[in-house]
Amino acid sequence: MTEPEILSRVQRVFVDLFDDPGIVLDRDTTAADVDGWDSLATVELMIELEDEFGVRFATGEMTQMENVGELLDRIARRLGSGGTEPGA
């Protein structure tokens, strides 16, 4: 899966979760840029993204991510390495 493909699916998850069709994500987007992205939403995002991509994040991984770019990299790495093992 290419990065633009991952980004577009991530964006769809965000739009649905935050009920905001106007959300446009790029690599630099952070929690502060999205209305309603608090700690509860982070957990909900994690659940939805795991469902969407069939991957499994490690404990603490999701809460430590700096921005959407890092999220895309981590999803790509997990998709590449068969999903469930923590990345390098």
Partner: peptide
């Protein structure tokens, strides 16, 4: 879900 317990004190897996 152990991860979600440590991460966010979720009492039951999603």
């Amino acid at each position: 879900d152990r991860r979600l317990w440590f991460e966010a004190k979720q009492p039951v897996s999603p």
